[in-house]
Simulated assay, not measured.
Amino acid sequence: MADEFIKGLTLFTLGGLGWITFGGWYRTPSYYDLSQLFGPAQGVNSVYDEIGVLAGDAFFWLMIVGPIVFWVLLPAGRQLRESMADDAAN
């Protein structure tokens, strides 16, 4: 269980750092603006900027989905598989 926890924590940390980095570059027009990191993309003029915005969105979803997979879905699937094996043995 410890390896699933650290994998989920790693994905959460990497996703969060990437999302904050790309969000700070492309989605934060001002330090005093209330919609930091969630506002519309600013100054997207080239393909590289579009890739940066897409990478920020990918890091956000990695931050959300990664821990859910390793902390909820995999242990639940393992528990379900053990329960089904116990039922088949009886």
Rank of each mutant, 00 (worst) to 15 (best):
1 M>P: 00
1 M>H: 04
2 A>W: 03
3 D>T: 14
4 E>N: 15
7 K>F: 13
7 K>H: 12
8 G>S: 07
8 G>Q: 00
8 G>R: 02
8 G>T: 04
9 L>W: 13
9 L>K: 14
9 L>F: 15
10 T>D: 08
10 T>K: 05
11 L>W: 04
11 L>K: 07
12 F>Q: 14
12 F>C: 13
13 T>L: 15
14 L>H: 01
14 L>R: 04
14 L>V: 13
14 L>P: 02
14 L>I: 13
15 G>R: 06
15 G>V: 02
16 G>H: 09
16 G>T: 13
16 G>P: 09
17 L>V: 15
18 G>K: 00
19 W>Q: 09
19 W>T: 09
20 I>V: 12
20 I>H: 06
20 I>P: 04
21 T>Y: 14
22 F>T: 07
22 F>E: 04
23 G>T: 07
23 G>F: 02
23 G>I: 03
24 G>A: 12
26 Y>C: 01
26 Y>M: 03
26 Y>H: 05
27 R>D: 12
27 R>N: 15
28 T>Q: 08
29 P>C: 03
29 P>H: 07
30 S>H: 11
30 S>Q: 10
31 Y>D: 15
32 Y>S: 14
32 Y>F: 14
32 Y>A: 15
33 D>R: 12
35 S>N: 15
36 Q>K: 12
36 Q>D: 06
36 Q>V: 09
37 L>N: 13
38 F>T: 13
39 G>Q: 14
39 G>E: 11
39 G>Y: 05
39 G>M: 11
40 P>Q: 10
41 A>I: 07
41 A>H: 04
41 A>D: 08
42 Q>R: 15
43 G>V: 09
43 G>R: 08
43 G>M: 07
43 G>E: 09
43 G>D: 14
45 N>P: 02
46 S>F: 03
46 S>D: 12
47 V>D: 09
47 V>I: 12
49 D>C: 05
50 E>L: 14
51 I>N: 10
52 G>E: 03
52 G>M: 01
54 L>A: 12
54 L>D: 10
54 L>T: 11
55 A>P: 03
55 A>L: 12
55 A>M: 09
55 A>Q: 06
56 G>V: 00
56 G>D: 00
57 D>R: 04
57 D>C: 06
59 F>G: 04
60 F>R: 10
60 F>P: 02
60 F>T: 05
61 W>N: 09
61 W>L: 06
61 W>E: 05
62 L>W: 00
63 M>V: 03
63 M>F: 02
63 M>P: 02
63 M>R: 06
64 I>G: 05
64 I>F: 08
65 V>C: 05
66 G>T: 05
66 G>W: 00
66 G>Y: 04
67 P>A: 01
67 P>F: 03
68 I>S: 08
68 I>V: 12
69 V>R: 06
70 F>E: 08
71 W>S: 02
71 W>T: 00
71 W>R: 04
72 V>N: 05
73 L>T: 10
74 L>G: 02
75 P>Y: 00
75 P>E: 01
76 A>S: 07
76 A>M: 06
77 G>V: 04
78 R>V: 02
78 R>N: 06
78 R>L: 08
80 L>H: 02
80 L>M: 06
80 L>Q: 01
80 L>P: 00
81 R>K: 14
82 E>R: 12
83 S>G: 13
83 S>A: 14
83 S>L: 11
84 M>K: 14
85 A>S: 13
85 A>E: 14
85 A>F: 01
87 D>G: 05
88 A>G: 09
